[in-house]
């Protein structure tokens, strides 16, 4: 299920990339490569290193070590060649001009500009074309940023939390537009902490936590990786060390006599439990959603590291 390794035709490749701020490892040995035409979600909690990774990809920050390539060249030259369109959370807009003026201006920076009217229609901002940029709502501003990202004819689109500040309806409209955009064979990389979004929009998900890549696969594979099943039951006498040794166990949670388990194989886990003489009551077995899978993967990682939950480190320092 691993897709790492650098092909000659990869759009983006991270080769053992790290970014340290003093003792903080914002990104820690990240290796991954994207193939043309993929829609890839970069999924992780706040402070996981998503924004730092995208910043380095877009030549805004330099890796402490490792190498990033985009279209076979360094990120700066790839960005300046106009082959990538990007939208960051922190990207601002020039005030005191109208939406149309701004989109026209930025399109003019591109070697292969797209007519501003087309871009504004695609981004759903044709109706606010004459409004001043500094008088827009949060959602409108976000759509203008998106318009700037697609104002040139590019091969890779990079979006950092693109639907923040959008209501549900606008979010759906956004993804409908986005799908039309990438249907032409463009590669899309987007960071998100909405699991639903990653599940629905991406054909590949990269789960990162604490700056490291924890999982890389299709949404289905990620769910499987996390332990596809959850079980819950009650026990008269809870023996934690024994429960932790159950086969297939990925995550264990005990509340008094109530036990929650995530497991890769619910049959094996159950038989081992029965084989040891336990008689669980109120037994329930079900499937995990991507959300639970994600929590399982990151929680497993946090436990393995410090025994405490992930500290929400500021993403931008």
């Amino acid at each position: 299920m691993s897709h790492s390794g650098t092909g000659p035709d990869s759009v983006v490749s991270f080769e053992n990339v790290s970014k340290h701020y003093g003792s903080l490892k914002a990104v820690d040995g990240l290796s991954v490569s994207l193939r043309p035409g993929e829609t890839v979600a970069l999924l992780g909690p706040n402070g996981a290193g998503k924004s730092t990774s995208l910043d380095m990809l877009l030549a805004l920050r330099k890796p402490t070590s490792g190498r990033i390539r985009m279209f076979g060249s360094d990120p700066y030259h790839a960005v300046k060649s106009g082959r990538v369109g990007a939208m960051l959370q922190s990207g601002g807009l020039m005030p005191e001009v109208t939406v149309r003026e701004l989109v026209t201006l930025v399109a003019g920076f591109h070697p292969r500009p797209i007519p501003p009217e087309t871009t504004m229609k695609r981004a759903g901002i044709a109706d606010i074309a004459e409004q001043r940029v500094d008088r827009l709502s949060g959602g409108q501003t976000q759509r203008v940023r998106f318009a700037l990202a697609i104002s040139g004819d590019c091969e890779l689109i990079v979006l950092d939390e693109p639907t923040t500040a959008m209501d549900v309806e606008t979010r759906q409209l956004f993804w409908a537009n986005m799908k039309a955009e990438v249907a032409e064979g463009k590669t899309l990389l987007f960071a998100t902490h909405y699991l639903e979004e990653a599940d629905q929009a991406a054909d590949r998900i990269l789960v990162i936590n604490r700056g490291r890549l924890l999982a890389d696969g299709t949404p289905a594979e990620i769910k499987e990786r996390a332990g596809a099943k959850r079980m819950s039951f009650r026990l008269n006498r809870v023996d934690e060390p024994f429960l932790l040794s159950l086969p297939g166990l990925v995550n264990l949670e005990i509340r008094n006599d109530l036990v929650h388990i995530q497991t890769t194989d619910s049959d094996d886990t159950l038989y081992a439990l029965l084989g040891a003489g336990y008689r669980p009551r109120e037994l329930e077995v079900g499937s995990l959603g991507l959300e639970q899978a994600f929590i399982a993967i990151t929680a497993e990682d946090d436990r393995a590291n410090t025994g405490t939950p992930a500290s929400p480190v500021e993403e931008r320092i």
Binding site: S81, G91, G92, L148, A149
Partner: peptide, 18 residues
């Protein structure tokens, strides 16, 4: 102000020279 708002960052994502 434009540095804080991120307009300078935004420009750096375009093909304009740094």
């Amino acid at each position: 102000q434009e540095r804080k708002d991120g307009w300078i960052r935004q420009l750096r994502l375009t093909p304009l020279p740094a």
